[in-house]
């Protein structure tokens, strides 16, 4: 099972777990990306997330397909927010269930790293004294 969604409403972490938990799995690995309150010493008021939704979901599907090929994992879920998020709010949830933990950890890491490189989602940091589109980390 897999589920990829772009959502403009708060992400429900427990609901994500409930979707992918299964008796065949021995564990769930989850990455929860949250909004940090400062960047290089500047105070972040909020982030504005924007997505090219149709393409983003297709790119997420490619990542998920690849993860299923590479690791023996059971279920994968990706939920990503759009809109205005305040520090502490959840921007992304990646959840992977697998029979054994190694596959779940590796797949989860692969999914978040690849998502940051290929999925058309952008964020603007709004500071108290200006705003800036975030450039990808090298």
């Amino acid at each position: 099972m897999n589920e990829m969604k772009i959502l403009s409403t708060p992400l429900n972490i427990q609901a994500c777990i409930d979707k992918i938990i299964s008796p065949q799995s021995g564990g769930i690995d989850m990455f929860i990306g949250t909004v940090r309150d400062s960047t290089k010493g500047r105070t972040v008021k909020h982030l504005e997330y924007e997505a090219y939704e149709s393409m983003a979901v297709k790119e997420m599907q490619k990542i998920v397909d690849e993860a299923f090929k590479k690791w023996p994992v059971q279920n994968i879920l990706i939920h990503h927010r759009t809109g205005i998020l305040k520090p502490g709010e959840t921007a992304v949830v990646i959840a992977v269930s697998a029979a054994h933990r190694d596959a779940a950890f590796d797949a989860c890491r692969y999914i978040i790293e690849t998502l940051k490189k290929t999925v058309p989602i952008w964020k603007k940091e709004v500071f108290e004294d200006g705003e800036e589109w975030v450039s990808p980390n090298p």
């Binding site: 090219y52 393409m55 952008w122």
Partner: peptide, 29 residues
Amino acid sequence: VAINDEYASGDSTIKQSDEIAVIPPVCGG
């Protein structure tokens, strides 16, 4: 540039019916 939801190479040709999008460096997560 993406054509119909797929990243397109420089030599891809554009048709009028295509959905064409300009994609700045992505930064999700």
